[in-house]
Design a protein around this nucleic acid. Sequence first.
DNA 1: TAAAGGTGATGCAACGTTTAACCAAAGTCA
DNA 2: TGACTTTGGTTAAACGTTGCATCACCTTTA
Lengths: 337, 337
Amino acid sequence: MTKKPTLANVANQAGVSIATASQVLRGTGRISDTTRNLVKAAAKKLNYVPDARAASMRSGANHEIGLSIHKIANRFNAEIISGASDLLEDEGYLLSVLDARDDVVRQRKQLEAFIRSSRGGLIWVPAADTPESTFDLLNTHGLPSVTFLRRPEFGELDHVGIENAAATFAATNHLLDLGHTKIAYLGGEANVDVRSERIEGCRKALNARGIDDIHIVDCQDSRSAGIEAMHNLMKKHPEVTAVVCNGDMVAIGASLAIGQVGMRPGREISVVGFDDTPDAKYATYPLTTLAVSPYELGRKLARVLLERMNEPNMPPSTTLVPAKLVERETTGAPPAK
Amino acid sequence: MTKKPTLANVANQAGVSIATASQVLRGTGRISDTTRNLVKAAAKKLNYVPDARAASMRSGANHEIGLSIHKIANRFNAEIISGASDLLEDEGYLLSVLDARDDVVRQRKQLEAFIRSSRGGLIWVPAADTPESTFDLLNTHGLPSVTFLRRPEFGELDHVGIENAAATFAATNHLLDLGHTKIAYLGGEANVDVRSERIEGCRKALNARGIDDIHIVDCQDSRSAGIEAMHNLMKKHPEVTAVVCNGDMVAIGASLAIGQVGMRPGREISVVGFDDTPDAKYATYPLTTLAVSPYELGRKLARVLLERMNEPNMPPSTTLVPAKLVERETTGAPPAK
DNA sequence: TAAAGGTGATGCAACGTTTAACCAAAGTCA
DNA sequence: TGACTTTGGTTAAACGTTGCATCACCTTTA
């Protein structure tokens, strides 16, 4: 529990000026081998670690990147974080993560904290119903930032997302090809555009076959919420034979609910998930789902942010990564009438 | 993309000195109502956010707390983080999270980054085989820190953990009471003392009944690793009728493996997990497991850290929270011989 | 009327870096 | 020899806060 050693201490110990010590440690300027060694030895001896706050204030650069995400306890999101973190680390940055738990005011506080500490850049997924003022905040302070998954409603920010509509379009066609006509969309919250895009994909596929009927059910992204929502759906709309879900957890929950009433997913009722989390494969009923590589998504995110940091005045870009259908056991032909 | 507004700008706008602006915004000193309002208006108008780096350098306090954990994609850990984060937030702190992915050198870098930015405090679970030098680092820089889950091998740090031995002792007794005698321990890595303590608990229970035979199998904390390890175990030691697992994921994997060879967990072979993650309840075979409240664990962690920050010279403390057995369907009497 | 006390605001140094500007000494070259 | 470059290093000014010491002014009181 000593006091933190400072650059002045190192310089003192080595018998040189502070500036010289700084140059040695940063590898800049012209320094003779002898003094270089002197300083390095002193630094090691004192266990010197530079103060990032001071360095970043003076230099104007900050090698810490902030990330605020709506949910941390989720394999998919965790993989995204790993991908982004790995790439950023290679470039000498550090990614620190905040769990917004889909709470607008919590996230607002988090973003303010990032601004206060002048993070080098920001990666975030806007919580549902994020007000315009939050986007303004970011613009006012000129912090390079990239959103992902949920497209920002206001402001001009870089964005990385998933080809949502194309994915659910494919999934719905798969169901139509199998012979389903009564299809429901399960999960997600109103006003989240990821979900709107996905529903749009379903609609487009249905319309192309002359169907314009689709039931939409809100529910949270968890297994238990999925179970409950599916039970309700089966009670109120027994005619539905296939559901497209907003996420794997909901889909797994829905499958379980189907099982609980003595039917089997993929036989009486088909289920499609989204994300292909590791859970999907090992669920009680192995899940047909839309797979995207979260790790690669994370890396892309990091790359977009770094570009933005290098080139603050580029026009905002939008990058979409594809999702592809992987068929497992929860989809099949509907029962013959 | 403007330039970040500074306190000087606010003072200027309000027509007062920098010192006055600072006092108003921090609520210190004696200020007349008129100037107070003037300054506040100016701050709001400019969208002013103070620079935490400068503030923290000058004041010596830092309201950002760092957390480094071996795995983020895990409901149990995520709940711990939520608990700690909530309590710290109430006290005006912010918790930023780093995923160490159980890599000693990655974690070392992360801790150094925390030191560089002089975080107000540190919560971390040491990666397996953390060398003494890492603990030294923390001591040299006098950063208040608390470890959890894995007890530090060196150094004198506060610690919050689980009553591991008592928990597995109870679980093993449960299995013994059901009539099992050939018991294996599945999961975890050597040199992680959480695991050693848990194995010790099993041993103690076995020894008390005159048994000193227990198979120990290493494997990572994931479903797929659990599946593989269990298949191997059944092949090499078909006499085993019960396994105690190092975590729920391994236990769920083990249950699946048992199912895959045509047996049923809780009938031919019993399985006990650890943690009681939400998955445990909804697994294909609802899991008997040892439950601890991760959210409460997180809160306790935060409290311990705050105490340490207030009272840097207290002797290091150790706090243990209990785990209790919840019986579901994966345990039962062994098949009659 | 002079000393004392209260109020509200300000000036200045400091926190630990980085970096541009500068400089002394030594080497190079015509 | 004198001018010019190179080498190796130092000085000092920032970066945006905070908090101590100070001060001008006004009111009270002996």
